[in-house]
Structures are given as C-alpha cells and as structure tokens.
C-alpha cells in the first residue's frame, strides 16, 4: 500500500511537469503550422493516456482494496454500534464472549471484525490500524485488521450518529498472543458476585440490572454495556474517562455532565454509603 502513495506522488509530479512544460512551450514557440501534430498530441496525451492511467490505477486500487478486506481472519470479533457505545462479542470455540467499549486483539494475527449497527449508521475506525468501515443497520460489514505493534490505539465512531457522537470512542489494545488468550479466558468467566454484597444490593434495588448484564447474577438487562468485567477496561463510558472510583461515582450521580443525553438515566439521589458500596462493587468486577 505504501507503494501506491509514492507511485501516485511521483506520477502526479511527472505529469504536472509535462503539462506545465507544454504550456510554457506553447506560450513561447510560434507554432502556426504544427496544428496537425497538436491535434494528435491532444488526443493521445489528453484522452488516451489519462484513460489508460486512470484505468490502471483503478485496477490497482481495487486489488489493494481486495487485499485489505479479506473475508477471513484468525479470529472473529463482532462489534455492534449503539448510540453511543460499542457492544463487542468474541466468537470462540466455547461460544460467544460478550464485552463492551474496549477491544483487545493479539499481535500479528488478523482479526476479522463483523460490524453491525443497532439504530443508526455508525462507523468503526481505528486510524492507527487501518481503514474505517461503516456500520449499517440491517447489514453486516466486515473489516480485517492485522496489528503490527503492541500498544493502545484509540478508536472512534467516524459517522455522525447523534448527540454524544463525539464521546463515542474505544480503546484497541494490542497484546502478545498468550497474554491475549489469558485475557479472553478471564473475560469468558462469569463474575464472582456475592448476592449479599451491599453494592450489588444497591445495583439491583436501583434497577441497574434491567439494562445491564452481569453474567453469573440475576442481572441480565440487554440495553446497556455488559458489566461482567467492567473494571478490567482501561476506560469508562465508551473510552472517554479513566477507570477510577471517582469517575465511576460521577458517572452514576452526575451523568448529565459526564456524557449528556445518553440512554442511561443519572442517579443523583444515590449518595453516601450506598454510593460508596455501589462504586466499590463495580470496581471489583475485574
């Protein structure tokens, strides 16, 4: 793909020089009786040559496009764009592993993303890793990414999707393959929650479980992000805040400031010991 850039750049420079050269020549030279030649030059240089060049570039570009959009990968990750967060499901031999708002992929392997949208068009983009791909309601689009470097690469929604669009991002963490396997195995486990846990009591009393799922408990709400291993994420609220107890606390009580106009209500009335218990319960979901 890097070749394409250089070929285009150098090709464009050469053609530009020829055109400008011809223009300068036409200004200077007196060429009344060269009309015949000029017409041939116009047809070959102005019509045939560009057609052939554009045709060749078209084929080349398409071949590259085909290469970067393969139909298979070493693993399949389904990502569903929601307003304004990401539902992420890893397909494994032991069944699907749902998470949200953070994507982890192993170094050097091709991850095939199968992209869908729940409500409106979103667009999935990790600029450092590759091109972007629209997520379209009712359709499944695909994008294959093969990360070459370890690190945390920011991703975002690249298609305006409503109020909190600008706050719809995610982290893409590229890990060593064996670390990744361990991480995925941990994500596949249900949460270990003591039903008597004070924080979990608040969670159910306030009805959080009607929107959020914590696998291994009675909370199986499908509306919001899966919180089973919530605290294992690097960031909160679709990749926008550091995962700290203070931020989680603000998220619950002051959502209108943290991420306005989203599909989760704010709970300013939760405070004191109840808030503390709820936050420390959420932070224990590793």
């Amino acid at each position: 793909m890097e070749h394409l850039f250089w070929v285009l750049l150098i090709g464009a420079a050469v053609i530009w020089c020829i055109v400008i050269g011809a223009a300068v020549y036409a200004q200077k030279a007196s060429v009344p009786d060269r009309e015949q030649q000029a017409r041939h030059f116009i047809v070959w240089g102005g019509a045939v040559f560009p057609t052939v060049v554009v045709g060749a570039l078209l084929v080349w570009g398409l071949v590259i496009l085909k290469d970067i959009t393969p139909n298979e990968g070493d693993r399949t990750i389904r990502v569903d764009g929601e307003r304004w967060w990401w539902r992420v499901v890893y397909d494994t031999d032991d069944g699907p592993v749902p998470t949200a708002n953070e994507i982890r992929i192993p170094l050097g392997e091709t991850a095939l993303f199968k992209l869908t949208a729940d409500d409106v068009i979103h667009s999935f983009w990790v600029p450092s890793l590759g091109g972007k791909m629209d997520m379209i309601p009712g359709r499944e689009t695909q994008l294959a990414l093969t990360p070459q470097k370890l690190g945390n690469w920011g991703g975002l929604c690249a298609e305006y999707c409503g109020g909190a669009h600008a706050l719809m991002r995610f982290d893409t963490v590229v890990m060593e393959p064996d670390e990744f396997d361990a991480w995925l195995a941990a994500q596949a486990q249900p949460a270990t929650v003591d039903p008597e846990d004070e924080g979990y009591q608040v969670f159910t009393e306030e009805g959080c479980g009607s929107c959020h799922t914590i696998r291994g408990t009675d909370s199986i709400g499908p509306v919001g992000p899966d919180l089973t291993h919530f605290a294992s994420r690097e960031r909160l609220g679709a990749g926008i805040y550091k995962m700290t107890p203070d931020n989680v606390s603000d998220w619950i009580t002051d959502l209108d400031n943290m991420k306005p106009d989203i599909d989760m209500p704010s709970y300013p009335h939760i405070n004191g010991a109840r808030l503390e218990a709820l936050v420390s319960f959420l932070m224990s979901l590793e």
């Binding site: 057609t51 554009v54 045709g55 078209l58 084929v59 398409l62 071949v63 496009l65 085909k66 139909n71």
Partner: peptide
Amino acid sequence: AVAIVFNIIPGLVLGE
C-alpha cells in the same frame, strides 16, 4: 464504451 468498461472492472476485481 470506456465508461462501461470502468463500470465493470470493480465488479470483476472485487466480486462481492
């Protein structure tokens, strides 16, 4: 004719 050929090429290369 050129336009039609250009129209066909993507279908042949990508085919999906």
